[in-house]
């Protein structure tokens, strides 16, 4: 496993021109563009609902938070075999059956890409609770006097949310967005467990880590290209993090 020959930046150039690696970056991008805002909105919504509830607040909080203790592997098992199985014994097709709709083989179809529904819902279930807790903490730190002042001014509902809650949650939102993005970069577990069967992975829906896993640890054992891919990914993440930090800070100045 010791490098036997120094090939300079050759492996980096190979990876950058490898269409499969580039398409894995596109897959990540599409995934992130959907999952980051969706998780953000749902967790914030859940936090707002739970924060305003007095009855059974801790029950609801626990229910949403509980999946955080679950692993991606267990969730993949439930999603693949129990909810989105291709036959009527799966919950989704069972429900469709009540309405007389044909069974949909969620994970066998490439077109339309129903597998995204399976992957995205699994991830939402697993991570919404954690971000909800972050938002809850942020909401509880907002001073009640701000709301009292707003009430005196006659502001309510959306206006209060837009002009008080959201700006006060700026720091929390920045952290949540960054964490969500970094998590999306690491997407591997649910893709691998839901889509691979018997050692093979379909030629679509391959995020970067899945592609690198099969490159470096598959039959090719190509550690040179695998490592080059890892370094490229690291650089991308670093750049994105810095840019995101800059954008949000610029936004600060603008306010």
């Amino acid at each position: 496993m010791t490098p036997t020959k120094f090939v300079g930046v050759g492996n980096y150039l190979d990876m950058l021109s490898d269409p499969a690696f580039r398409s894995s970056l596109v897959t990540f991008l599409a995934f992130a563009v959907f999952i980051v805002p969706t998780t953000f909105v749902i967790s914030l919504g859940a936090a707002l609902l739970v924060a305003r509830t007095r009855v059974m607040q801790s029950f609801f909080r626990s229910v949403f938070f509980l999946p955080t203790a679950c692993s991606y592997v267990v969730a993949s098992l439930i999603w693949k075999m129990s909810i989105f199985s291709g036959i009527r014994s799966g919950l989704a097709n069972g429900v469709l059956g009540w309405f007389g709709v044909d069974s949909i083989p969620w994970l066998s179809l490439a077109d339309p890409p129903w597998y995204w529904l399976v992957i995205v819902t699994a991830r939402l279930w697993l991570q919404v609770g954690f971000y909800m807790i972050l938002f809850l903490a942020g909401i509880q730190r907002i001073s009640p006097t701000l709301y009292e002042a707003a009430a005196i001014d006659g502001a309510e509902g959306w206006k209060v949310f837009r002009h008080i809650t959201l700006p006060q949650l700026r720091a929390t939102s920045t952290a949540v967005l960054l964490l969500l993005l970094i998590n999306a970069f690491q997407a591997f577990d649910e893709f691998y467990n839901i889509l691979s069967t018997f050692g093979t992975y379909p030629p679509y829906a391959r995020p970067p880590l899945v592609y690198l896993y099969y490159t470096a640890l598959g039959s090719g054992q190509d550690f040179g290209h695998g490592s080059a891919g890892a370094v490229i990914l690291t650089l991308i993440i670093a750049i994105v993090a810095v840019v995101q930090g800059r954008i949000l800070r610029l936004g600060d100045r603008g306010e």
């Binding site: 120094f6 550690f223 080059a228 890892a230």
Partner: peptide, 14 residues
């Protein structure tokens, strides 16, 4: 090591 491994030849198949 990461950077070095990335510069090594493809598989190091000896």
């Amino acid at each position: 090591t990461g950077a070095l491994a990335a510069c090594g030849s493809n598989t190091g198949r000896e």
